[in-house]
């Protein structure tokens, strides 16, 4: 299964959420890999806690160079042995699958989706598909060449069949309309997808939205120290946003997860472990949201309602 994470804007929580979901999915027993295609800001190394790759790899064999034909195979990192998060992870937890990061290049910049590049991308995905049951791709924000490349590959290469798109957005008026535009409007995913050979309806059925850093007025009341008036006001705003989301096509049936705002993630981009929850540093609801999303990636019920 190929899981493609995208968003209209940067700073939506796409990378942090996707890394955590990949981590949860590996703990649930799948062999998982994570491709950092966000060539503008490859942050997955930092989130997974691989110090030497905080801003992508320096080994000149990252995905960016691989796609340009500058290395015959891309470099990779085994997260269980190289991450310092969770501290001293050591060997893989019992029953967990592999967790491997294919980093982007340090200062890789953008590139164009030339035919050779698309060919190399297809080759890589086919190879990884034979080794991993779930492949995560962190795409750059907005309408990018990387997105064009992935749309083309998934339309043309029939052997890469089980593809799911996650569109990340924060729970604000602006983010909701930006995410809707990215999918439904001119030059959006559906239109471009159709142009590159996808069936529009079929592609639509493969897209779900993820709401990130959402404040729940009721639960977060204590945390934020809200007065009753403020809580009531937040509730009102929340209702308004829900109405907006429904009209924009981001309503309940097309949302696959809502990730609550988390104190740890507000401070640092990182994996949240069960230990963080026991230590009461991170919220259990956050981990639950990640784990549930991980499990729902191929849960028919989560994908059938459109």
């Amino acid at each position: 299964m190929l899981v493609i994470a995208t968003s209209d804007k940067g700073g939506t929580g796409r990378s942090v959420t996707t890394c955590n979901v990949a981590y949860r999915r590996a703990i649930q027993g799948d062999d998982v890999c994570y491709l950092d295609f966000d060539f503008g800001s490859p942050t997955a190394g930092a989130i997974f806690g691989v110090e030497r790759m905080t801003h992508g790899t320096q080994a000149e064999d990252g995905l960016h160079r691989y796609l340009q034909g500058k290395t015959v195979t891309p470099g990779y990192v085994d997260i269980w042995s190289e991450s310092r998060r969770p501290p001293g992870t050591g060997p893989r937890p019992t029953g967990a699958g592999n967790l491997v990061l294919y980093p982007g290049d340090l200062g890789g910049g953008e590139f164009t989706a030339k035919p050779e590049v698309i060919e190399r991308c297809a080759e890589l995905l086919l190879l990884l598909q034979s080794q991993f049951s779930v492949i995560f791709i962190d795409l750059s924000a907005g309408r990018s060449h990387a997105a064009e490349m992935i749309l083309t590959v998934t339309a043309r290469e029939k052997r890469i069949s089980d593809t799911r798109w996650l569109v990340f957005h924060r729970w604000t008026r602006q983010h909701i309309s930006a995410a809707a535009d990215l999918v439904f409007e001119e030059r959006g995913l559906l239109e471009f997808g159709h142009l590159f050979g996808h069936d529009r309806d079929e592609l639509r059925r493969r897209i779900r939205f993820v709401r990130t850093a959402v404040i729940d007025p009721k639960i977060d009341q204590g945390l934020l120290g809200l007065r009753p008036e403020q809580e009531a006001w937040l509730r009102q705003v929340d209702k308004g946003l829900n109405e907006q989301a429904n009209i924009a096509g981001l309503g309940r049936t097309s949302v696959i997860a809502t990730v609550p705002v988390d104190p740890v993630l507000q401070w640092r981009e990182q994996l949240i472990t069960d230990e963080d929850v026991y230590a009461e540093i991170a919220n259990e609801t956050t981990v639950d949201a990640f784990a549930t999303l991980a499990a729902n990636l191929d849960e028919p019920a989560a994908w059938s309602r459109l």
């Binding site: 015959v72 086919l126 598909q129 034979s130 080794q131 052997r159």
Partner: peptide
């Protein structure tokens, strides 16, 4: 190692293969 690995790449993309493996196995 890179050459050995890229040879696997080349084999896996062959048109003889349907991509529907019953098992995913790490290299």
């Amino acid at each position: 190692g890179r050459t050995a690995e890229s040879t696997v790449f080349n084999l896996q993309r062959s048109r003889l293969l349907d991509g529907k493996q019953p098992l995913h196995a790490p290299l």
